[in-house]
Computed example of a mutant assay.
Amino acid sequence: MRSKLFVPGSRPELFAKALQGLADSLSFDLEDAVAESRKAQARALLRDFLRAQLPPNHGKTLIVRVNAMDTAHFEADIAAVVQPGVHIVNLPKPENTDQVRAAAAQIEQAARANGCFQPPRLLLNIESPRALRIAAELAGAHASVVGLQLGLGDLFEPLGIARREPAAIQQAMFAVRMAAAEAGVYAYDGAFANIQDTEGFVAEAQLSKRLGFLGKTCIHPSQVALANEVYRPSNEEIAHALQVVQAASAAEANAVGAYVVDGKMVDAPFVRRAHAIVEGARSLGLLPSAHPH
C-alpha cells in the first residue's frame, strides 16, 4: 500500500475512475472532504456504490474514512459503509482505548447486518497530542487495528507548529513508528497539502520511508506515481535482500548465527528485513513468484 488516494464521498463521478488509477489503495472520504450539508448525501452515494458497482478483481485496498466518533455522523457512516469489499475503516481523532474498542464493536455489528464475511480492519489517525502520547495503547486496544496513520496538519496547526518544520516532522514520525512497532501494526504517512510542491512531497515521503512507514496518503492523482516510486524497493535494495536471504539459508544449514554479506555483518534482524523487502518486491511483480525465499 505504497499510495493511498483520497476520493471525496460527495464526488461519485470519481469513484469508478479512481479504481482504474495507479493508487495501491483508495480512501473514500466522508470526513474533511465533504461539507457538513452534504454528509448524508455522500454517505448514501458511497453506500450505493459499494453495494452495487464494485467491479470484480479491481486489485485495490478499499478504505473508508468515516467521521469522528464525537460527531453526529459516525454511527450512520459505519452502518452504511461497512460493506463487502471494504477492507479498512479509517477512524479520525481517536482519543482513548475505549473509543477504539467501541468503534470495533460497531464495525462488527454493521458487518453482521450487511453480510460481511470479514469485518473491515481499523486504521487509526494520530492527530492530537494525547493520541501521539498513547499511540501504542490505541493501536493495541483491539485486534482489528491494522495500522496508525500520522496526521500532521491536525497535530501541528492548532499548536502553532510549522507544518514543514523538519525537526517536528521527524520526531512525530519516529514516535508513531515506534508506537506502531510496539503494537505490531504498520505506520502510514499522512497527506501533503501543497499539490504543486512535488519536491516537498517526495522529500517527506522519502523521510517516512527511511523511518519505516508503509506508504503515503495522496490528495491528488498527480501524487500517486511519486509515492509509488518512493516506496518501491530499489533494485539495489532487492539485490542485497536476495543475497541476504540466500546467505541466511546457507548459514542456517551450517548453524551459523552471524555472517557477512557485501562486507556487512548480518544476523536475525537484518534477515527479517531482507525477507520483507523480497516479499514486497514479489507482491509488486518485481520478482517471479517462484523465486526461492
Rank of each mutant, 00 (worst) to 15 (best):
G153K: 04
Q170M: 14
Q170L: 14
G184Y: 09
G151T: 07
A167H: 01
P233L: 08
E157N: 07
V230H: 06
A191K: 00
A241I: 10
L214D: 08
A241Y: 03
A183W: 07
N194K: 12
L242E: 15
D197A: 11
N235V: 10
F192R: 01
F201N: 05
L226Y: 11
F156L: 09
E199R: 04
A183Y: 05
E165A: 14
Q170E: 15
Q206A: 03
R210D: 01
P221R: 07
A162R: 05
L159C: 00
L207G: 00
V245G: 02
A181P: 02
N228Q: 05
V224E: 04
K216L: 08
I169C: 11
E236Q: 10
A179W: 01
L242I: 15
E199G: 09
E199A: 15
G151E: 06
R210L: 02
G153L: 14
G184W: 14
C218R: 08
G215F: 01
E182P: 06
A172R: 11
Q223K: 06
A205E: 04
Y186M: 12
L211S: 00
L155E: 08
D197G: 07
V202R: 01
A191R: 02
L211F: 07
M173E: 09
E204D: 03
L211T: 02
A241E: 08
V224F: 11
T217W: 15
V202D: 04
A187H: 05
D189A: 09
Y188I: 13
G215E: 05
E199Q: 14
P158A: 04
A175H: 09
Q243E: 02
H240W: 11
T217E: 06
